[in-house]
């Protein structure tokens, strides 16, 4: 068995809501191994986005802990090392509107303190099939193209794991399929682990391990 790159133990998360405390995640345990792909399905409002945010360190759990493999030895809580070790792909792309495709990809590397990122950004855009669009602004790109840029951006800092939250949710069926194919292809090719949140059974089938989130717990599906 290969090594663990992301590990969640006993995650619990609740939110204050108008109707009192809303417990979204009760007890989540998850181990993601290097290079594998994992899918999470669940009904709307079941807490999939919340879980991904905890896994990526965008929020902290009420109890339990998340550990992320950064280098060969250290495991760190991901909210202490945002931008390193984890790459995000969001449903609505979340590109910087004032930067072109190339700059959007390079920005992630610059923020992470990686110098000389321009070449790498160009190579990644070629990898996602956008070498002819690198100077386009997000408004000049189609949804599918935007998501490809976002995938390139998620890859540039060589994360151990990519967290993708319904990456095809805003795309039509054909484009969605293309983007999903690309995503699965590049993570396999670069031996990057993938945690995919999706509504689509079809896409979930293509991952190596599948989970279902309901009532705040993960069950294998």
């Amino acid at each position: 068995m290969s090594e663990i790159v992301l590990q969640a133990k006993g995650l619990k998360k609740s939110f204050k809501s108008p109707t009192g405390l809303l417990t979204v995640l009760r007890s989540i345990d998850l181990e993601v191994y290097a290079g594998e792909s994992v899918s999470i399905r669940g009904s709307s409002g079941s807490g999939k986005t919340t879980l991904l945010q905890l896994l990526g360190g965008l929020d902290v759990p009420d109890s339990g802990e998340v550990k992320l493999k950064l280098s060969s030895r250290t495991m760190l809580s991901p909210h202490r090392c945002l931008g390193q070790g984890v790459g995000f792909v969001f449903q609505n792309y979340q590109l910087m509107p004032e930067l072109n495709a190339w700059e959007n990809v390079a920005l992630a590397a610059q923020i992470a303190g990686q110098g000389e990122s321009e070449k790498e950004a160009q190579a990644l855009l070629a990898l996602v099939g956008l070498s002819h669009r690198i100077h386009h602004m997000p408004t000049q790109l189609s949804g599918g193209e935007c998501q490809r840029v976002a995938i390139a951006r998620a890859l540039i800092n060589q994360p151990a794991v990519i967290l993708a939250d319904e990456p095809t949710g805003n795309l039509d069926e054909v484009t969605g399929k293309d983007v999903m194919n690309l995503l699965l292809e590049v993570v396999a090719q670069r031996n990057t682990a993938l945690v995919l949140v999706t509504h689509s059974k079809e896409f979930a089938e293509r991952t190596q391990r599948r989970f279902f989130l309901s009532s705040g717990v993960l069950t294998p599906a």
Partner: peptide, 9 residues
Amino acid sequence: EVGVLVALG
């Protein structure tokens, strides 16, 4: 966008 920048580190 600020949220994204924070997510990017």
